[in-house]
Computed example of a mutant assay.
Amino acid sequence: MDNDDERCCGTGTCIINDEGLCWCGQQWNGTTMCHPQTASPASPTISGSDTLEQGEAP
């Protein structure tokens, strides 16, 4: 299969939409196809007033 799209990752099977997303999950970043960066989930934080003393019920 031949794919003349410059954004093709080299497999020749890329189907890229107008937003630059390929069917395989990669995304065009303006230079190359790469896996989109996902926002890391915010880790929960506990302030000093929210901590439990040993033996306390939640």
Rank of each mutant, 00 (worst) to 15 (best):
T51L: 11
P58I: 00
E53R: 01
N3A: 13
D18N: 12
P44W: 06
S40P: 09
Q37V: 06
P41L: 05
A39Q: 13
Q37S: 11
A42G: 07
E6Y: 13
G20K: 08
G20D: 07
D5C: 08
D50E: 14
C24E: 03
A42I: 07
Q27M: 12
L52P: 00
T38V: 14
I46F: 03
G55T: 01
I46N: 01
G55K: 00
S43T: 15
G12D: 01
I15D: 11
G12W: 01
G25A: 02
I16L: 07
M1T: 14
P41W: 04
I15G: 04
I15H: 09
C34A: 06
T13G: 07
D50A: 13
D4L: 15
L52D: 02
G12H: 01
N3C: 14
P36V: 09
P58N: 00
P41E: 06
C14T: 14
G20N: 10
C8D: 10
T38E: 15
W23K: 08
C14V: 14
S43F: 12
A39F: 14
C34M: 05
E53Q: 06
H35W: 12
H35D: 11
T45G: 02
D50R: 05
P58C: 01
T32P: 04
R7G: 04
D50M: 07
P58W: 00
A57W: 00
W28H: 03
S49H: 07
A39R: 14
G48P: 00
G48S: 05
S40K: 13
M1P: 14
C24N: 05
Q54T: 10
A39H: 14
D4W: 15
T13K: 14
L21I: 11
T11V: 13
P41A: 06
D2Q: 15
N17A: 06
T38F: 15
T11M: 12
G55W: 00
T51K: 08
T11P: 07
N3P: 11
A57L: 05
S40C: 11
G20M: 05
D18M: 13
M33R: 00
T31R: 12
I46G: 00
R7I: 10
L21V: 11
L21D: 09
G25R: 01
T45A: 07
H35L: 10
E56H: 00
G48T: 03
D50P: 00
T51W: 06
I16Y: 06
R7D: 04
I16M: 07
G30T: 08
T51V: 13
A39P: 10
C24F: 03
G30E: 10
A42D: 06
C22T: 09
T31K: 13
P36W: 09
E6R: 12
T51C: 06
I15R: 07
E19G: 04
P44F: 10
P58M: 01
C24D: 08
E53C: 04
C24A: 02
I15A: 09
C22A: 09
L21R: 10
W28Q: 01
D5S: 11
D5Y: 13
S40N: 13
T32R: 08
T32K: 10
T38Q: 14
C14N: 08
M1V: 15
N17F: 03
P36L: 09
G25K: 03
E6W: 11
D18E: 13
D5K: 07
L21E: 12
P58L: 01
Q26H: 14
D2N: 11
P41G: 03
Q27Y: 05
D50Q: 12
R7A: 06
T13Y: 12
A42C: 08
T38P: 05
C34N: 05
S47N: 04
T11C: 14
